[in-house]
Structure formats: structure tokens, C-alpha cells
């Protein structure tokens, strides 16, 4: 592992970790945010058809 490799690794892993933690912080500290956020977990309206 060269010094360049260490730099690329630390910057890459550090940046994605910080970005993820920032998003967690933002969701937890914004009132009512959990009601407005979605992934692909949302039930689709056609699931309710008989």
C-alpha cells in the first residue's frame, strides 16, 4: 500500500461515513421528517385491490 493508496482510502471511506452520519443527524433533528422520508418500502396503492 503506497502513501497515495492510504490517502485515497482514508478520504473515500471517511467521506462516505461522514455523509451517512450527516443524513442520520439531519433526519433525527428535523421535526416530522420521518413522516416525509421514504425508500422503496412504500406500499403501492394497487396492493389494496381485492
Amino acid at each position: 500500500m503506497t502513501p497515495g493508496g492510504w490517502i485515497v482510502m482514508i478520504l473515500s471511506v471517511g467521506s462516505v461515513t461522514i455523509a451517512f452520519l450527516w443524513c442520520v443527524f439531519k433526519v433525527l433533528t428535523t421535526p416530522h421528517e420521518t413522516e416525509k422520508m421514504h425508500g422503496f418500502d412504500r406500499p403501492t396503492p394497487d396492493e389494496n385491490e381485492p
Binding site: 500500500m1 497515495g4 493508496g5 492510504w6
Partner: peptide, 11 residues
Amino acid sequence: LNGLGFMWNPE
């Protein structure tokens, strides 16, 4: 360590 080098070394 060589595995990390394979993954991250820019050269």
C-alpha cells in the same frame, strides 16, 4: 496490506 494496496493504490 497488499489487498488494500490493490484496492486503493492510484498507480
